[in-house]
Design a protein around this nucleic acid. Structure first.
Lengths: 218, 218
DNA sequence: TCCATAATATGACCATCAGTCATTATACGA
DNA sequence: TCGTATAATGACTGATGGTCATATTATGGA
């Protein structure tokens, strides 16, 4: 009987490993050639499995996309947590989190390419279980930022006339809009003589400026 | 000879009408059931044409999506132009444009639903001719806003320490990020006890506040 | 009026691909 | 060693975007 339990455990671990191997392969292929341009057949070949086997580990292709997202979200969350744990002012933490975030985006260009391209549609399909998991992950990050802003308000480095939670939302949305900037917009920027790099810098200044505590006025 | 030319003209007009009829039908179906859930076969049936015929008028399904977008962009642009032509301060124009924009979004819910869901992927596929057309349309709007901000800076109703063109970009991006707010985010908002309506209101206040001229400080 | 030609329309057909399932192979415990 | 449960498989299905050889229609001149 003990033996049975032990085997079950091992199988569980093996299953988890196999799952991760599949996600690894999916990342490799999706990142390099795009989610839509990789068939489940190809992916199966990459992990040396039959196509049908993939469906024993993931409900469908979207679930695979979703699994990649969650793994990256955890990775990023770890970075945010580190920043939040530092012993500096709220505003400093927030600044650092922004900096680390953009570094992370830079180090994961293909990932963000995939998310920006396919995310919007797939996220809108999420339901029940999956939506819930996703929402929980978003919440974790959001609450971290929320906490940082509250600290900032308490220590006087962040303006305190806005709900800190909403402020966290604003920041997330604005950051996201730069990261996922449409190529059309990029083209317009260039046509108007503004480099993307410059634009990002200015937008971040604008945002930073908008959340900092100001010398009192009316 | 004259007759030939006249016929050519008429044919040209008829072709244009047919094209518009197809776009009408496509809007109707795509808006109500989603871009992906409408097959070209169905669409053909709706306009009482053979499937192959559609491809005489539009290169592919994406081109149809794109045609819908352009038509709506023109509609919205007309509204913006009206606002820009009013005889009020720059800041007032900008405010009004924002108001009219959100009204427009409200009146075209299904359209924005479609754009937010399928736009990101399709816009990233655009190339050459199509990309150029799209960029030109975006530019038109952008320059209108740019002009309004410059007026605002000149008349002292808008802060003048930022490039007005970049400011126009910021506004466009931020507005867009609210309009296309991911359902996941909406769920998180709700879970945290913030209604979407309230959130939009606060974000707009935040933005407005960020572009208004401030009592001088360092 | 009638014909030749060009323009327009058509739907059977093709290729692709996500997802299924009946069948086969493997691992395990007795 | 054997019977059962678990895991793996790939042929198959259904849906669909896009093509193309063929058919239909409109046009302008004879």
């Amino acid at each position: 009987m003990v033996k049975i339990m032990a085997t079950a455990d091992r199988k569980e671990r093996e299953k988890e490993q196999r799952k991760n191997a599949i996600i690894d392969a999916a990342e490799k292929l999706f990142f390099s050639r795009g989610f839509d341009n990789v068939s489940m057949e190809e992916l199966a070949k990459e992990v040396e499995l039959g196509k049908g086997t993939l469906y024993l580990y993931f409900k469908n292709k979207d679930a695979l996309f979703f699994a990649i997202i969650l793994r990256k979200m955890d990775e990023l969350h770890e970075i945010f947590r580190e920043c939040a744990d530092l012993k500096v002012s709220g505003r400093e933490k927030s600044k650092l989190m922004g900096k680390r975030y953009f570094e992370f985006v830079h180090e994961n260009k293909e990932y963000y390419q995939m998310v920006c391209t396919n995310g919007p549609k797939l996220f809108r399909k999420l339901e029940n279980e999956e939506l819930h998991t996703f929402v929980e992950h978003m919440k974790e990050d959001l609450l971290l930022h929320h906490g940082v802003f509250r600290e900032g308000m308490a220590d006087g480095t962040v303006r305190d006339d806005i709900d800190p939670l909403e402020l966290a939302f604003f920041m997330a949305l604005m950051s996201n809009s730069i990261v996922c900037l449409d190529p059309g917009w990029k083209t317009v920027l260039e046509a108007e003589g503004i480099s993307y790099h410059q634009f990002v810098k200015d937008f971040l200044l604008f945002i930073g400026n908008a959340i900092e505590k100001r010398p009192d006025a009316d």
